[in-house]
Design a binder for these strands. Structure first.
Lengths: 145, 145
DNA sequence: ATTGCAATTGATAATCATTATCCTTTTGCA
DNA sequence: TGCAAAAGGATAATGATTATCAATTGCAAT
């Protein structure tokens, strides 16, 4: 049993939720994949292992993973919410190529500090933020020329 | 005729699009409102002045306003796209209260520079970005105590 | 082990913002 | 004025997500 499963079980227990095969399987498959995955993509993977699982169950399980602190939502604004690992995967922002859709994870500690300062200057206590940087990657720029 | 209308007319002309009463009215009402407005809210306002206008027309007109550079989309991630003025209303980011939903427009030129630098360090040419800072405003913090 | 029951599941219907379709009405121009 | 193309209005379609509900299952107490 890895640490994530441990966290999940503790979360379930604490909230009087049940430990089911479906939830275990969904968590397992989610953990195996790095990067961003949509609910539907995850559902497709889950179906391969157990075709009887419904997609509503996947949506419900993803909510639990978020509440348990194991997953985090990302919204690139294309109408689909994606999910990524949160445990042992510290906060970061995203750099997205408008050409090929490639995404990179980036962090800049100075930006992070300034965000806090900006918020405070307006009397806000910052809890979290989202930052999406859009542009063209090296490859796509070369193709354009 | 104000500058925005001028820009809109030029845009229509340049693209062989027609200048219609509906488009004029929607633009006029959009310009009158400061802040963020959803397509539906705008539709409600438009209906008051001309109940015969359909909401598809409002959606279509908003697209034109964006293409003409007069409006800009904002996505707070709540499933509704909002629109705000773009002309004479330079880029800014948003500071959003998780308590009361209040939003403020903020800019920090140092952050802007750093964003560009971060993107470049990964070989990206930055075209635009979105930054949403979430937290609790002064009011909401006091209420919590 | 068995039971009792609330939590969970799977299938499916419902939502809700946004888009597409389709037919009618206008518009801009000859 | 007449006409082709553009635009509008009504409405159906879309597509991701959520709600509903009957059937099943996990689990604590027996």
């Amino acid at each position: 049993m890895n640490e994530e499963q441990n966290i999940f079980h503790k979360y379930l227990e604490k909230h009087d939720l049940r430990d089911t095969l479906q939830r275990e399987l969904i968590l397992q498959i989610f953990l195996r994949r790095e990067g961003h995955i949509s609910a539907e993509q995850l559902y497709d993977l889950v179906k391969k292992r157990d075709p009887s699982i419904g997609q509503a169950t996947v949506y419900r399980a993803l909510k639990l993973l978020i509440e348990a602190g194991l997953a985090r939502e990302i919204d690139f604004g294309d109408g689909v919410i994606r999910y990524e690992h949160k445990y042992n995967h510290p906060h970061h922002d995203h750099l997205i190529c408008r050409g090929c859709g490639k995404t990179l994870e980036v962090v800049d500690s100075v930006i992070e500090k300034l965000q806090k300062r900006v918020a405070e200057s307006y009397g806000f206590e910052l809890t979290d933020h989202e930052m999406y940087l859009y542009g063209y990657c090296e490859n796509c720029r070369q193709k354009r020329q």
